[in-house]
Design a protein around this nucleic acid. Sequence first.
DNA 1: CGCCAGGGTGACG
DNA 2: CGTCACCATGGC
Length: 293
Amino acid sequence: MRYTTAMVIERLKVKPKNFLFSLNKTYLPDFDPELTLMGGQTFSWKPLSSEGFFLGITQTKAIIAKYKRPYLLWQTFPNRDDFKFIEEYFRIKDDLSKIKTQLSQDPIVGKAVAQTPGLRLLKQPFYETVFSFLLSSNRNIKLIRKSVWLLAKILGRAIKIPGIAQVHLFPTTEAVASARYSQLKEAKVGFRAKFLKLTARAILSARQPTRDLTAYPGIGPKIADCIEVFALGNTYVTPVDVWVKRLLVELYGLPDNKHYLFYKKWLSNRFGYLTAYAGQHLYEWYRGRSRAK
DNA sequence: CGCCAGGGTGACG
DNA sequence: CGTCACCATGGC
C-alpha cells in the first residue's frame, strides 16, 4: 500500500503529574481510542484510569496510550520509546481523512464513517492475533476480552510499570503450547482450549510460517480473514461475521442464504484496497447502532 | 428460562 | 458439494 500524502510525525516528550515515566507525543490528527481499542479488532486493551488512559498488552510489551487531539500520547514497556512499534501498530501513516473521503462515495459507508470518527485500523503482532481470534468463535466481544486478560494473568509474564500495578503480558506461544488444560479452563475459553494448544504447537513445530491460516486447528475462513486484516495488514478483504452479514442483507439487499465467500467477494469487489476500512466502519457503526436500541 | 455471540469441525447424505 | 448438531460460557 502506498501513501502519497506527506505525513507529519512529531516526537515530543511530555511528563504528566503523578506519572513516574514520560510519554511520547506523536501527531495523529484522527483517532478515537474507545472506538479503535475497545471494538472488535483487538481484545488486548482496557481503560486504565478515569483520565482517558488505556493499557494494551502484546507478547513482548505493554503500551500506555491516551489521545489528546491531535496527539497520541504513548509509552512502551519494558523497552521505552519504541516508536517503530507504535508507528506500525497504529498505522500512523494511514491518512484517515483521505480514506474516509474515498469511502464516502458509497452512501451507506459514508453514513457509517460519519458516525464513527477516529476509528482506525490496527496492525497487530501476528501470533497474539491468532490466539485472540481463536477465542472469538461463537462469542461476543466482552467475553473474548475477558478470556484474553485471564490468559495473560494466568500464563503471561509479569512486568512492572512504574507507578502502576504490575502488568501481565499476552502469553507467549510457548506458554500457550505448554499450558495445562486446567489453566485454560480457568480462563473460560471453553471448547477452544484444544484449538489454542494445537495451534500453538503447530506454530512452534513449523519450519516456516503457514501461508494458509485455515490449516491451523480452530481457524476457518472468517477468523483467517480477521488475522489477514488485523495482523497482516491486508486491506483488500474484511471479515464477515454475523453483524456484517446482517447489515449486507438489511442495508444492501443481499440474499441471506449465501456462503461466506459470497459476501466476502462482494465486499472486496465493491471496495477494493479500502475493503478493510469499509468493513470495519460498517461493523462498528452497525453493531453500535443495534446495541443502542 | 431461552437466545445470542467478530465460528469451526466433523458426520452424514 | 450442502446441511446440521455440537462445542462451553456468560450476558441479557
